[in-house]
């Protein structure tokens, strides 16, 4: 059996693997890194997204042997020194998760998105996350979270965001976007 050396969340592992072993099963079943879940078998859902040598990859569509010599970062490796990654914090603050199953992959995809576009528009976020499916949120709060996380990562204050607004003005109902007609100027997807 091939022997692979892979660094996962800062720890170097050397393991013998069957050639067909998927990276995600290597992480979950061999290393016990169960933070990265599997949601489909065609690379569509993105739940299993990790950073592979610094770029997002769907770990269900990579063989462990292909990752030999690589550096893998999973959602479990994002927080450091007890501090959440700003994107993790933003997902929490904007209520960008419900069941949470897509969340690890969504967070990794969001972090990757910001590498090229540190201040993405709503449309850029939606396009950038199209390979990560969520069935709970309808994506509105995920989009807000990614933009909030982007501001936090670039050192800006979080500013007015929907989650906070909803909280602070809860007495007037959660009408964060309420108040103005939206028939005008809302771009079609």
């Amino acid at each position: 059996m091939p022997r692979v050396t892979v660094t996962v969340d800062g720890v170097a592992y050397e393991e013998e693997v069957e050639p067909r072993l998927l990276l995600v099963h290597f992480l979950r079943d061999r290393l016990g890194r169960t933070g990265t879940p599997v949601g489909c078998d065609t690379g569509n859902c993105g739940s299993c997204t990790v950073m592979l040598d610094g770029r997002s990859a769907k770990s269900c569509s990579v063989l462990a042997v292909q990752a030999d010599g690589s550096d893998v970062v999973t959602v479990e490796g994002l927080a450091s020194g007890g501090e959440l990654h700003p994107m993790q914090r933003a997902f929490h603050e904007e209520h960008a998760l419900q069941c949470g199953y897509c969340t690890p992959g969504m967070i990794m995809a969001a972090i990757d998105l910001l590498r090229d576009d540190p201040d993405p528009s709503e449309e850029a976020v939606r396009q950038g996350l199209k390979g990560n499916l969520c069935r709970c949120t309808g994506y509105c709060t995920i989009v807000r979270a990614v933009r909030r996380g982007a501001r936090a990562m670039s050192g800006e204050p979080p500013g007015e965001t929907a989650g906070e607004t909803a909280g602070e003005t809860a007495g007037e109902t959660a009408g964060e976007t309420a108040g103005e007609p939206v028939g005008e100027g809302v771009a079609a997807p």
Binding site: G46, T49, L52, S56, K58, D112, L113, G131, N132
Partner: peptide, 9 residues
């Protein structure tokens, strides 16, 4: 083509 993660690989 597909999505960003797929395009990386």
């Amino acid at each position: 083509v597909a999505d960003p993660a797929v395009r990386h690989r």
